[in-house]
Computed example of a mutant assay.
Amino acid sequence: MTTLPRELSPTVAAVFAAVDAERQRLGVPGAVVAVRSPDAEPWSVALGVRDIATDEPLAVDAVLRVGSVTKTIVATVVLRLTERGELGLDDDILAHLPHVRVPSGVTVRRLLDMTAGLPEYTTEEFMEISHTTPDRVWGPQELLDLAFREPHRFAPGSSWDYCNAGYILLGMLAEHVTGDLVEDLARKLVLDPLGLHDTSLPPRSAAGTSLPDATVRGYHRVGAELVDTTDVNPSWAWTAGNAISTADDLVVLVEALVRGDLLAEETQRARLAGVPVPGTDWSYGLGIANFGGIWGHNGELPGFQAFAGHEPGTGRTIVVLANVDKSTDEVNPADTLAALVRRHLAPGTA
């Protein structure tokens, strides 16, 4: 059992104890949980271990991969470029990148809210290749070429489907119109303005493979086995999911995104005008999701899973980072732990 800090109040300690018990039940080696609430003290707690071989405890300031939470950063970069006049939300992508094999009607807005209908490259076959060639540095065009082997899923604007390929295309677009690397754009337009010094988009090179602290490991679950996939080069996810961050940084990020701190009011309204996600009560805006009243994003890369959400109705923020991608019962561990925290903090239960 993880030893919780003595200074936690009884109420908060009970929440984190329940979360730690669930973490152990789910077979999650380590997790960092950060909670901010207007009616309770702010806390960030590390549970479990950073490395199953050494049993070293995971630190609360551990820098982990956050997967598709990256999309919130990249979308904010693109939205800020629209405010600078370098792009328009309803610009056709072909007006900027005429060589890309997409139909007319694939716009910046439709890439951001995943209504463009692009095919996907992150198939089971591709993920197996990425696991067996961990040092490979993937190029964005290479990823799109893999996606475009398949037919487009639907006519642009006629439906919704989650799509990583669209965010690869947005990364290419941002670099094309500015002449800057997207990791530099993220630093300049999002991360530095918010003071997020432990968050970055790693370079698309061999140098982007390792985490800042090599003692922190991430595990891909294969049946009952945990396979260390920490050092799979994340270039295959690039602007769809290669960011690294801490739980405390993601608290700042998701609260700023939901408030619209970096955007004009009109742009923020457009961002939050979500498209219904079929089969759920969720909606998806411009690089941000509404999970039934809590806004943010989740993410998964081999070895890691993350959830970052802010609930405007209560003022609460919940962030969970896990160093495994699936639980023993094949659910997303960070999402599951975040939902448990949310239930415990609901009125009358905590």
Results as ranks from 00 to 15, higher is better:
residue 295 W to E: 03
residue 334 A to R: 13
residue 183 E to C: 07
residue 328 T to D: 01
residue 87 L to W: 05
residue 62 A to P: 01
residue 303 G to F: 13
residue 170 L to H: 06
residue 45 V to G: 10
residue 65 R to H: 04
residue 126 F to H: 05
residue 258 V to F: 07
residue 323 N to S: 12
residue 297 H to N: 08
residue 34 A to K: 09
residue 67 G to S: 11
residue 45 V to Q: 08
residue 24 Q to C: 04
residue 213 D to E: 11
residue 94 L to C: 13
residue 218 G to V: 10
residue 39 D to Q: 14
residue 242 N to R: 02
residue 72 T to S: 13
residue 46 A to V: 11
residue 125 E to T: 15
residue 204 R to Y: 02
residue 197 H to R: 15
residue 96 H to Q: 08
residue 260 G to P: 11
residue 317 T to E: 08
residue 308 A to G: 07
residue 102 V to E: 01
residue 179 G to W: 04
residue 61 D to F: 03
residue 3 T to N: 10
residue 201 L to W: 03
residue 9 S to N: 04
residue 8 L to P: 05
residue 239 T to Q: 08
residue 66 V to P: 05
residue 81 L to R: 13
residue 264 A to I: 10
residue 77 V to E: 04
residue 33 V to N: 09
residue 212 P to R: 10
residue 143 L to P: 04
residue 113 D to K: 05
residue 172 M to D: 07
residue 36 R to Q: 13
residue 321 L to A: 10
residue 171 G to D: 11
residue 213 D to Q: 10
residue 183 E to H: 12
residue 66 V to C: 05
residue 236 W to Y: 14
residue 30 G to E: 10
residue 278 P to E: 00
residue 85 G to C: 06
residue 269 R to A: 15
residue 315 G to V: 09
residue 2 T to L: 06
residue 217 R to S: 10
residue 158 S to D: 07
residue 184 D to P: 09
residue 42 P to D: 15
residue 300 E to K: 11
residue 197 H to I: 07
residue 311 E to Q: 15
residue 335 D to W: 11
residue 166 G to K: 06
residue 349 T to W: 05
residue 193 P to W: 09
residue 31 A to C: 13
residue 218 G to S: 10
residue 106 V to P: 04
residue 241 G to R: 04
residue 304 F to M: 12
residue 52 I to P: 01
residue 107 T to V: 13
residue 344 H to R: 15
residue 75 A to K: 00
residue 119 P to L: 12
residue 173 L to R: 07
residue 299 G to N: 08
residue 153 R to C: 02
residue 51 D to S: 04
residue 36 R to N: 02
residue 175 E to V: 03
residue 297 H to I: 02
residue 244 I to D: 01
residue 6 R to L: 08
residue 337 L to S: 08
residue 182 V to R: 00
residue 119 P to S: 11
residue 176 H to G: 00
residue 137 V to E: 03
residue 85 G to R: 01
residue 213 D to H: 14
residue 105 G to D: 10
residue 45 V to C: 12
residue 119 P to K: 09
residue 138 W to P: 03
residue 334 A to V: 11
residue 75 A to R: 01
residue 75 A to I: 00
residue 273 A to W: 01
residue 231 D to M: 06
residue 5 P to N: 09
residue 187 R to P: 03
residue 312 P to I: 05
residue 15 V to H: 09
residue 105 G to W: 01
residue 149 R to D: 02
residue 268 Q to A: 05
residue 54 T to F: 01
residue 99 H to D: 14
residue 97 L to A: 04
residue 240 A to Q: 00
residue 254 V to W: 07
residue 116 A to M: 06
residue 127 M to H: 06
residue 25 R to N: 10
residue 248 D to Y: 01
residue 61 D to H: 09
residue 312 P to Y: 08
residue 38 P to E: 13
residue 213 D to M: 14
residue 134 P to L: 08
residue 202 P to I: 11
residue 153 R to G: 03
residue 100 V to Q: 01
residue 92 D to I: 09
residue 227 V to L: 15
residue 258 V to L: 12
residue 231 D to L: 06
residue 177 V to Q: 10
residue 13 A to E: 09
residue 238 W to N: 08
residue 153 R to T: 10
residue 158 S to E: 12
residue 306 A to L: 04
residue 60 V to S: 11
residue 257 L to V: 06
residue 106 V to I: 15
residue 49 V to E: 08
residue 293 G to Y: 12
residue 49 V to Q: 09
residue 300 E to G: 13
residue 164 N to Q: 07
residue 331 V to H: 14
residue 144 L to P: 02
residue 342 R to P: 01
residue 312 P to G: 07
residue 54 T to A: 00
residue 48 G to E: 00
